[in-house]
Design a protein around this nucleic acid. Sequence first.
DNA 1: CCGATATATGACACCGCTTGACATATCGAG
DNA 2: CTCGATATGTCAAGCGGTGTCATATATCGG
Lengths: 337, 337
Amino acid sequence: MSERANIRDVAARAGVAVKTVSRVLNDHPYVSKDTKARVEEAMRALDFRPSVAARILSGAKSNQIALIYDNHSPYYMFQIQTGCWEYCKQQGIRLLAQPVDVTDPRVGDQVRGLVTETHVDGIILSSPVTDCDPVLRALEALDIPFVRISPGTNHALTSSVFMDDAQAADDMTTHLINMGHRRIGFIKGHPNHMASDDRLFGYRRALDRAGLSFEPGLICDGEFDFDSGVRGGNYLLDLPDRPTAVFASNDDMAAGVLAVAHDRGVNVPGELSVTGFDDTTLARTVWPPLTTIHQPMAELARTATEILIAGGDLTHRRLPHTLIERASVAPPARNIA
Amino acid sequence: MSERANIRDVAARAGVAVKTVSRVLNDHPYVSKDTKARVEEAMRALDFRPSVAARILSGAKSNQIALIYDNHSPYYMFQIQTGCWEYCKQQGIRLLAQPVDVTDPRVGDQVRGLVTETHVDGIILSSPVTDCDPVLRALEALDIPFVRISPGTNHALTSSVFMDDAQAADDMTTHLINMGHRRIGFIKGHPNHMASDDRLFGYRRALDRAGLSFEPGLICDGEFDFDSGVRGGNYLLDLPDRPTAVFASNDDMAAGVLAVAHDRGVNVPGELSVTGFDDTTLARTVWPPLTTIHQPMAELARTATEILIAGGDLTHRRLPHTLIERASVAPPARNIA
DNA sequence: CCGATATATGACACCGCTTGACATATCGAG
DNA sequence: CTCGATATGTCAAGCGGTGTCATATATCGG
């Protein structure tokens, strides 16, 4: 029955010219309320869906944007996708979520391919693609608008939304210090992510301000995943003079530390305080629930989408973080004078 | 400089007809090795990317498929997306991940819109959209091929991939019984998901076979999320004659039970065994790590994609599950004669 | 060596929509 | 009554591919 109706069918049914239907479709001025209504009625009656392909081809906007990511944290990506998604839906824009591999030398090509093949109107970059040079260059060459979520470099060059990772880490460290901790272990994030450095920086700054010396021996590498948390936890708890608190730069790694503590019968927070970062669902799911930094991921994504779709000038928006106190932190057992 | 090259540019550069380039693009027979090489060389030189829009418009396949989902478990969706992704990438197919809301009365329309606008060649449905009537009807009316991942109903009507939820739940229950448990609490899954019923069924079947009576008082409602696990855990641990083991129908809820146990100082697995289902990363992340059923999510997704792209006849594929033993299960403290 | 068949390539219309150049028509303001 | 703003239509071109049909050459059995 219902072969998909095209613009001509609609025009015929509404008794107007094809051009007029096109005008209605594109919100052109100089269309009377009356005809507009008639055309819209016809569209509805025919269940008319303008072919995106045809519109794109004839040079119009595609009403599609892409979210490019390469992040292996399910929680993080879920939040980001959802944030973008909600705003897009509300605006009638289609979202293409595209994973890439930032370590692949051909990423630039892949992105170029994505843009030229699908004709997306704009792009949202999430960390760590935000700082992937080949991608950035490709996008600039293509002259397509894009917004970065939590970029680490060249902050000013393109629109971006972000939170203050350094300040957040500073806040958390200060919180620990205020609780009485003096030896605070720190597990770094994935080296690909610029935020990792910022968090370490915040940790050091808080230490400095409090007059505590920075001990490289209390820092360990991590990759933002559970296993590196386990490694870090083991390393720190094996230390002869072990820390009374561990600040892991994300929740997954904090969970790893928790597992190590449980495994060794080290009570948290009684004998060891543990904190995370991000406030993913994981933070509430583990035991004890994690004191962590709430990173407004969905909000960041939503805001990025808004900026992209608004399409105005260079915009930078910083969203606030929050320190969430839960049960994984307590004053150290015996205060060392 | 580089305005995007089109097929004509390529043709000119290779010294052949446009049609010939098209043939090369689509792997048509009857193109000599020689011309093919020449054309490909030209494409490379010009960095040619065929416009999806144009191909769609001219009636060809779009080389795009959509994954439709409405699942709020980040980990599950991450795995599913990744599974689809990998195969698509390998096949040069673009994947559009599209969330929907199965409770929205207009889902059918949304899906219809998606298909007619993007001209996707096929669709993958993940639970619970697999059993969403409006969507199913819309897809059938559109006469577009689709594959369902873990459908609960009308199994035979469309291609599908799935695991044996009932058997898996049976296995898990039997495992607990073999460990000596006689009173096993069960937390149901989200009522929207057909798998929830299957898992309950498997639990009952194992009980029956072991000659244990089914006690409705040991069953509680759940929604596949942490909070309902907490509710279920509280309910079960408040019981005068409380169970020695709790089988939660997914890992998130099992984590909830664990939290309740920790909170009450109930040792797991010493005083209470807890098991999950799915084997998400969460299962390894909580303490103690969960004994659970490994559901091959990425594999299911990958297989579904394979079937869809192969585009052959009705296919059904069951993938095996595995019972993963970790530390959350032990024999009950004192055996009741 | 011939017509038949397989292989290889080209010409051209067309997919559904937008757009620009014009042509008209109506209408209220000056 | 004329003018500019508003409203609508006609027509042709074009976006970047693909399908159909025609054509040209190579190959092959008899």
